[in-house]
Design a protein around this nucleic acid. Sequence first.
DNA 1: CAACATACGGAACATGGTTCCGCTTACCAA
DNA 2: TTGGTAAGCGGAACCATGTTCCGTATGTTG
Lengths: 195, 195
Amino acid sequence: MVDIDNGSGSSGPRKRADARRNEKTLLDAAAAAFITSGVDAPVRDIAARAGVGVGTIYRHFPTRADLIVAVYQHQVEACAEAGPTLLANSSTPHAALVGWINLFVDFLVTKHGLAEALQSGDAAFETLHAYFLDRLVPVCAQLLEAAATAGEIRPDLDAYELLRGVGNLCIGANNDPRYDARRMVELLITGLRLH
Amino acid sequence: MVDIDNGSGSSGPRKRADARRNEKTLLDAAAAAFITSGVDAPVRDIAARAGVGVGTIYRHFPTRADLIVAVYQHQVEACAEAGPTLLANSSTPHAALVGWINLFVDFLVTKHGLAEALQSGDAAFETLHAYFLDRLVPVCAQLLEAAATAGEIRPDLDAYELLRGVGNLCIGANNDPRYDARRMVELLITGLRLH
DNA sequence: CAACATACGGAACATGGTTCCGCTTACCAA
DNA sequence: TTGGTAAGCGGAACCATGTTCCGTATGTTG
């Protein structure tokens, strides 16, 4: 689920050259389509952009979640890796937590429809949900624990629940000038503070 | 947009008897379908339940939003009216605010898909969004202002933004035992407190 | 270069929203 | 009561989109 290419590197028989080429092309096309039409961009549109048939998409990315994960993998990794870095470089664990949550929010808010898809509960997005959680919950948990240990926040909040809450608050942040997801998230984090 | 029946009461020419009957039947069918399949229940399902053709649904409720509004109107009204009542009967404005938000959350959480629809940004739900806002934002604003005047919360938060945030936090609360929307909302409200 | 497996394209199917029009029926006036 | 009329009805037909499947094309290998 996290292996792109297979140009030769990982296990299994080497894939055909055209297959690898198409996979790359598809990723580019999907990324572009996601920007203009959101992560719900019609399969046919993505296929057309890439100049392939729809069957080719399904062969490489059986579910939409697989495609989305592949497109955003690097950014999710970057976000995950930023956690420990922030913890090491920030003045307090709480500051690190706030900084990290902001990264997460900025990421979600700039991907049209991603927050919606993440929380939709639709079975088609199950692996998307799972990927984000597997990668980010441990990081968030570490930040929460550090801040709790430092006595800066209440110690009784689950990282999973916090991430879901934050993800939820990011929904629809792009098409409503009156709603500022960042401010709401800030409020939520403030609510975490002890005293 | 808020006139059901027209049995004779309001303006315009009196509707035909079968039309009024069908409208009632449709409301019942929709309410039932919403409970079992959520507010996204297929139009054909609702029509079948009511024993009418799909055309009849569109004639009475041109958009899904109209149907949803009609189904939940009474509960939204009740929620709106509870605002002033709570304010009058609670020990503090802040308590009234918390109580009212809880009412709102309970309402949203028990209607599968409603929170999602409300925040979806989909043009089809525009009038739904508008109805909720028209009715509830003033109530929420009144509660916020009372609490702010009493020095219990920060005075700089817009009622619209708070309601959207709370609505967002309610998304997906039904199909994930690990996520408790009520707790998240509580956290958000805690973040509002001064001190 | 032959033969085989892999991969491709896109037609065909499934689902669900939306429109439209010929038919039915409630209502009213004579 | 009855005929005319407009309001209302049903559901076929149409459109958009996701998903599957198989005949064809092509990379790869001996």
